[in-house]
Design a protein around this nucleic acid. Sequence first.
DNA 1: GGTCTGGTTGAGATCTTGTCTCAAGATTTA
DNA 2: TAAATCTTGAGACAAGATCTCAACCAGACC
Lengths: 142, 142
Amino acid sequence: MAHRLKEQYKELLDKKGLTYTFERKRIFEEIQKISVHFHVDGLYDRFKKQGERISRATVYRTIPLLLESGVIQKSAGNGKRDFFEKTNAKGHHDHMICVKCEKIIEFHNEKIEALQDEISKHHKFKVTFHDHRLFGYCQKCQ
Amino acid sequence: MAHRLKEQYKELLDKKGLTYTFERKRIFEEIQKISVHFHVDGLYDRFKKQGERISRATVYRTIPLLLESGVIQKSAGNGKRDFFEKTNAKGHHDHMICVKCEKIIEFHNEKIEALQDEISKHHKFKVTFHDHRLFGYCQKCQ
DNA sequence: GGTCTGGTTGAGATCTTGTCTCAAGATTTA
DNA sequence: TAAATCTTGAGACAAGATCTCAACCAGACC
C-alpha cells in the first residue's frame, strides 16, 4: 500500500522533472510512521527531535508534492493551521472538533456523501474535495 | 429580528459584566448593513472609510462576543481568513467554492442537517456550529 | 464633587502560520 | 570540465490575528 503510494510520488516527481532527493524520501518515510493527522511544523519537529536537519522550508515545500501525488490529503483543520493525513490511513472521513479540549472525533456517513453528490450535480459543480466539520463540545467538555 | 439579536447581544454582555459601549454598538449596527459574508478587516475598513476611528483591535475583540451571542456565525472561509455573516441573513446554509474563479454557491439541505444531528447525538457531541464546504469547479470553470 | 476600582480603547508590538529569497551546494548535461 | 539547472537551508517576509500597555472612562463609594 505504502509502496504503491511511493511509486505515485516518484512518478509525479518524474513527470515534473524533479528529483527523488534524500529529503523528499525522508519526508515521505516519516509520514508513513504517523498514524493520525499532523500539521507541517509538527512533521518538521519530528526531524528536529531526531537530530536530522531538514529545513522547515523543505518540509513546507514538499507538502504540495505529496498532496498532488495523493500520498497525503487535507484533514480536519482547527481553523488556523492546515492538517494532513496519509491517504491510506482509513479512507475518507469528516470531523467533529471540540472547541474546548480540541479533541477530534472522526465520522463517516455514506448518506451525507450521497446527498453532497446530488446537490453538486444539481448545480453542475464538480467537487474535488470537501471539508465537513462540526464544532462544539465533546461529551467530557459539555 | 435584528432587534431580538440586539437583546441577546446585550444580555450576553450583561451576563459577562461587560458594558454596551459605543464601539460595541456601532459594530453591531454596521454588521446589520452587510448583506453578505465579511471578514474582520473588511468590517474594520468600513469604519475607516467612513472616518470613524474604531480600532482594529476593538473590532477583532468584539467578534467573539457577537459569535457567542448568536448575532453572527462563521461562514465560508477561503482557507486563510475567517469569514462571518449575520445569523439572520437567510438562515443557515453551506457553500460550494470554485477553486478557480472563487465563486461561491450556497446550498442548504435539511436531510444533511438531520444526519449531522443524528451523528453528533450518537457520539454525545454537542454541536454549536458547523462548516461544510465543497471545493471544486463551477460550471464555467470546468 | 472627588477618589477609587476596574472595564475599555487605540496604537503598535508581537505571535503564528506559511511563503519567498538568495547564496551555496549538488546534479545533470554538453 | 564547464554550464545550466535543481535543491536546500537559513532567515527574511507577509498576512492574519492576538496581546500589551498606557490613557481613558464609568460607576461605586466616601
